[in-house]
Design a protein around this nucleic acid. Structure first.
Length: 427
RNA sequence: GUGGCCGUAGCUCAGUCGGUAGAGCGCCAGAUUGUGGCUCUGGCUGUCGCGGGUUCGAGCCCCGUCGGUCACCCCA
């Protein structure tokens, strides 16, 4: 039996890296005033229909339950979060800043950077609009990426605003669908052959040349961006930002600023994406609540590729992952007579939160030291016929200290503490 | 849904002209009867994805099929 296509198993090493990544992200989000939420993994299909229309249903894992309800595995968090906000918007202190981490599902053909179940770290800010709020979200995204060891040479945030295109079409008397078609064509620029994009543009009533030169023209001084530019500049984020009119994001519900983070080498899919979606809460709640909102999501798949491609041995994420996997103390039972003593001490150490391991069956001493080594333990304690005396071995230096068992806890505590002081990243 | 590439040991892969299957890593044992990383010695592991065809003979050639992967499509 294998996993279903597009689903993944995570063995300890990789899972430790993911866990380290997620913990780091949560710390950064909390530092920005965001609180964690979660929502059901399974939702009514209508939650997604309402937001984006029927055409997305084909990409959802959906089914009908025994009560004839149409159900979908969630493809993203935003609609659920919008519902949560709408339901309690009168009692929630504003601005509402939420983050969450969870699994999402899309029924697509799996390929590089895309699987059918993936994790997303999602951040949303409700109840406030304007450049300050937009900059806060872009700033949080940048902080999250920097926190995993990426710098301005590794990634950039491409940023635009849908108003740019609303103004572009304002002069022409064109039907609503033309704007939608225009945005879709712009979104596909660089992903499809030029002739095809041109054909789309012509069909929608636009001259390809005009659209292209509009995109190519430098736009960081466009008055639309002036407030946002100032906010970002004050946050010292300019080096991470590229203003780029070709960024529109795929879906129709964005109403203002839109942005995506991508790797500088341009080898991977977008790392993260988001924007302002002021109409969504009203739409989800049928007008019961109407709050401005902006948010983004970072998937785990592309970012893990990027981290692993960088392969920085000193990266804080790898250090934390190693720490999550490593043991601390290994009890070597050199003589089975001493096993009951070792077991009692193991229980005490474990109760005190010390990561403690020992051989479950009779094993040669050599084998036990190998296990201690492989588990990454910094201390081994040898229990043998000389009980109640035991030997503590410092694995790093091979130094041995023989002491009375009664002094063991204190001594281990000291040794682990010393190690902590020497290297705060290990304990 | 469409197309390219790939399926050989637990893993990564080699396998020449078609002649009965190999390396490295890992694992196990020993050198070392109470001491780990290195070294050395020995050992285990195969439905060559599956089915059919060609052939005296197929891992290799042909057809089909399944799986993986990358790309297209789509991308919240």
């Amino acid at each position: 039996m294998k996993t279903l296509p597009g689903f993944r198993d995570f063995y300890p090493e990789e899972q430790a890296r993911r866990r380290a990544l997620f913990e780091r992200w949560a710390e950064v989000a909390r530092a920005h005033g965001f609180a964690e939420i979660d929502a059901p993994t399974v939702e009514p299909l209508d939650l997604y229909r309402k937001k984006s229309g029927d055409e997305l249903v084909g990409q959802l894992f959906s089914f009908t339950d025994r009560g004839e309800r149409e159900i979908a595995l969630r493809p993203e968090l935003t609609p659920s979060a919008a519902r949560m906000v709408a339901a309690k918007h009168r009692e929630l202190r504003r601005p509402i800043r939420w983050f969450s981490l969870g699994s999402f599902f899309r029924l697509e053909r799996p390929q590089r950077g895309r699987s059918r179940e993936f994790c997303q770290f999602n951040c949303d800010l409700f109840g406030i609009s304007g450049a300050a709020a937009d900059a806060e979200m872009v700033g949080l995204l940048i902080a999250l990426l920097r926190a995993v060891g990426l710098g301005p040479q590794d990634f950039a945030v491409r940023l635009s605003d849908r108003s740019v295109w609303n103004q572009f079409v304002a002069g022409a008397a064109l039907p609503e669908e033309s704007t939608v078609a225009l945005l879709q064509a712009v979104d596909k620029l660089g992903r499809e052959p030029a002739e095809r994009t041109d054909a789309r543009l012509l069909a929608a009533g636009f001259e390809p040349e005009r659209v292209r030169s509009f995109i190519d023209e430098p736009c960081e001084n466009d008055p639309i961006f002036s407030d946002l530019r100032r906010e970002l500049d004050q946050r010292r984020l300019t080096e991470f930002i590229t203003f780029d009119r070709s960024v529109v994001r795929g879906l129709a519900y964005y109403t203002g600023v839109v942005f995506e983070a991508f790797d500088r080498k341009g080898e991977l899919r977008a790392i993260a994406g988001g924007g302002r979606y002021d109409g969504l809460v009203a739409k989800i709640s049928d007008g019961a609540a109407d709050l401005p909102a902006a948010g983004f999501a970072i998937g785990d798949v592309v970012i893990m590729e990027l981290i692993e491609a960088k392969a920085l041995p000193a990266a804080s994420i790898q250090r934390r992952a190693d720490q999550l996997l490593a043991g601390q103390v290994f009890l070597v039972i050199a003589d089975e007579i001493a096993r009951p003593h070792a077991l009692r001490i193991a229980s005490d150490l474990r109760a005190a939160g010390v990561r403690t391991d020992f051989a479950l069956g009779s094993e040669k001493v050599t084998r036990q030291f190998q296990a201690a080594e492989q588990a990454g333990c910094s201390l081994a304690v040898v229990f043998g016929a000389e009980w109640p005396r035991v030997k503590i071995k410092l694995m790093a230096t091979r130094e041995e200290i023989e002491i009375e068992a009664s002094a063991l806890y204190e001594r281990i505590g000291d040794l682990l503490k010393i190690r902590r002081l020497e290297n705060p990243n290990l304990q």
